[in-house]
């Protein structure tokens, strides 16, 4: 096997090892990264920032622990933004395995800002039905969520007394690791015209651009880059900024491997052509 063949057939274990190193080192040594704020992320920030204090905002947890590294920093950053702006937070979700996570994230942010449960924020949990739940919420939230996550009737929570349907909601922020975002747009925006911002894993992000282009959503926070951008916008650097460094070096490593693979491929092709001509 000549050098070019070796370059085009690098053992996958070497790739895995180098990738593990470039991911681990920036996290362990907390190497910060340069963060560029994309237009869609700034739009999402502006959508939250333009809400007057006291406006209710729904956070929809449509992910599970698998997507936590990307979506948790986004949710934390936006919750900080919302509490800083004195918005009224309603936490809910369409993925049952995501609810304990969002509860944890919500309680952490609430503690940081010393906000009061039932007055500044509520957690209404999960109901099955997705699209059907969204439609019913457009008529009356109590049709589907008559109690909060701990079984307390919504009417007994001071904040919920004036909140009945989407016309009382300033914005829906949905955190997506699947196709639930499409359903939010189709039912909540399509039927009731509620404003939506989406925060999605990097894999899901490209699917959401048509909604952004058609102004069906107000902004889009995509992947770790979006999370880091939001942390930068709220001026509270946290996990995403550090993880972004890992992602940046991982991207560079993959690009280097792609270039090496192509060099090997082209040199081998050239050698084969020379051989054929010689014969």
């Amino acid at each position: 096997m000549n050098i070019w063949e070796k370059l085009s057939k690098i053992d996958r274990r070497i790739i895995y090892l180098l990738l593990a190193l470039v991911v681990i080192i920036p996290i362990v040594f907390k190497i910060p990264s340069t963060v560029a704020v994309s237009g869609p992320a700034r739009m999402a920030f502006d959508a939250v920032d333009n809400l007057p204090p006291g406006t209710p905002i729904i956070f929809s947890t449509d992910f599970d622990p698998a997507s936590m590294p990307e979506l948790r920093p986004m949710m934390t950053a936006m919750l900080r933004h919302a509490f800083k702006k004195r918005l009224k937070v309603i936490m809910m979700g369409h993925w049952p395995t995501g609810i304990p996570l969002s509860t944890l994230i919500l309680e952490e942010a609430a503690k940081e800002f010393e906000v009061e449960y039932g007055v500044d924020y509520v957690n209404i949990g999960y109901r099955p039905g997705a699209g059907a739940v969204m439609i019913q919420m457009g008529r009356e939230i109590r049709n589907v969520f008559n109690v909060d996550i701990e079984g307390t009737p919504l009417d007994s929570l001071p904040m919920m007394k004036t909140i009945h349907n989407y016309s009382d909601i300033g914005l829906v922020a949905c955190y997506e690791a699947g196709a639930m975002g499409d359903i939010w747009v189709q039912y909540a925006w399509g039927r009731f015209g509620v404003k939506i911002v989406m925060a999605t894993t990097a894999v899901v992000t490209p699917e959401c651009y048509p909604y952004l282009g058609a102004h069906q959503i107000e902004g889009l926070i995509g992947g770790m880059a979006g999370a880091a951008a939001y942390e930068k916008l709220v001026e509270h650097p946290d996990k995403a900024m550090i993880r972004m460094s890992s992602q940046a070096w991982a991207h560079i490593l993959i690009i280097v491997f792609i270039i090496i693979g192509n060099i090997g491929y082209f040199m081998m092709r050239r050698m084969e052509k020379t051989k054929t001509k010689g014969a």
Binding site: L19, A20, M68, T97, I254, G261
Partner: peptide, 25 residues
């Protein structure tokens, strides 16, 4: 949480290896 995160994290390694092998001009 750890099992789900581990399963999803493994994707990064497969994607890196697949990108190296598949992205040929």
């Amino acid at each position: 949480i750890p099992l789900s995160a581990t399963m999803f994290s493994l994707l990064a390694f497969f994607i890196a290896s697949a990108a190296y092998r598949a992205f040929r001009a």
